[in-house]
């Protein structure tokens, strides 16, 4: 059966409009000058057009980040929608960059754009991947660290979506604790 032209051209709309950011570490410039908005998208098809066009995270240089945030939220603690929030953090061993990193990051993106946390998806602000020589990190950021029910639900679903085993635990850190930490250890607020 032939579809009308208008229907063929219709794309699948996402619940939210998302913005992809890229950070490249240049010590000669201010932190914020190194952070660039790449593009925004709001349909399934446009997400893939972007994703298939950019370098996989595992091929980025050390010190670079990708961030995917809801449009209107900047990928930094200081944003009003982030500052009371925190992040579920996945840290990867060096050797996992080639085996797991791109899969985990893609599954993270699909969780966000597909609104896979149900009603709690409204708590999501975005996700960040940090490529670092000491070990890569992936995190999903939520807007309110005190909202324990939502945060732990998101953590449990996220862990399941990544296919992490029961023995592995992931921790949630409040941005306020990360920002004020005096050493490399940030307090973990929740664990799943």
């Amino acid at each position: 059966q032939e579809l009308p032209l208008g229907e063929i051209l219709d794309k699948y709309p996402l619940q939210n409009r998302w913005a992809l950011w890229f950070f490249k570490n240049d010590k000669n410039r201010m932190w914020q000058a190194n952070l660039r908005l790449v593009t925004r998208f709001s349909t399934v098809e446009d997400f893939w057009a972007l994703y298939d066009h950019i370098k996989p995270a595992s091929k980025l240089s050390c010190g670079c980040d990708y961030s995917l945030f809801k449009d209107g939220i900047e990928p930094m603690w200081e944003d009003t929608q982030n500052k009371r929030g925190g992040r579920w953090l996945i840290t990867l061993a060096k050797q996992q960059r080639h085996s797991k990193l791109d899969c985990f990051w893609l599954d993270t993106l699909l969780c966000l754009i597909g609104e896979m946390f149900g009603d709690y998806s409204d708590e999501l602000c975005g996700a960040v991947i940090n490529i670092r020589s000491k070990g890569d990190k992936i995190a999903i950021w939520t807007r309110e660290a005190e909202n324990q029910e939502a945060v732990t639900h998101i953590g449990r679903v996220y862990k399941e979506r990544l296919g992490l085993s029961q023995e592995v635990t992931i921790g949630y850190q409040a941005h306020a604790d990360t920002a004020t930490k005096s050493n490399s250890l940030t307090k973990t607020k929740f664990v799943v």
């Binding site: 063929i8 893939w48 599954d107 699909l110 597909g114 609104e115």
Partner: peptide, 20 residues
């Protein structure tokens, strides 16, 4: 309702040629 898509649905669109 909320526009929710599961992983398999979203993955079906990867590498799909863009429509013009």
């Amino acid at each position: 309702g909320k526009k929710q898509y599961d992983r398999e649905f979203l993955l079906d669109f990867q590498f799909m040629p863009a429509c013009i």
